[in-house]
Amino acid sequence: MEALYAIAVGVLTACGIYLVLRGRTFPVIMGLTLLSHGVNLFLFASGRLALAAPAVIGESADPTDPLPQALVLTAIVISFAMTAFVVVLALRAAVELRNDHVDGVDPEEDWRP
């Protein structure tokens, strides 16, 4: 299981990185989301993978590590805030600069809002 999970984390990260390196804002935002998923799963796994052992007192005999979960919960909310902000930033940039390239300069000048 650990190997498969690690591969999944790696694939999410790789996909995220590839998209973050694209030239248009929207794929970059999608890449950031994938990267956040990868990072969250990575952090989460530092508490090890446990089946049916939630960190609720009385629910299971050997509860899993609650600390990474609390950290990841914070990370999820923060990355949501970041996504919302970046989305609006991209929108504003697209309107003001009349293109959606990350550098603010459209290499082809093919889209005018």
Binding site: T13, I17, L49, A55, D65, P66
Partner: peptide, 24 residues
Amino acid sequence: AALGGLGVGLVSFAIMTRPHSTIA
């Protein structure tokens, strides 16, 4: 991307297969 993903995956695997010592 491949290098980055490979690295993160390897680190993740290395962490998960090590003995778990925690302040939990």
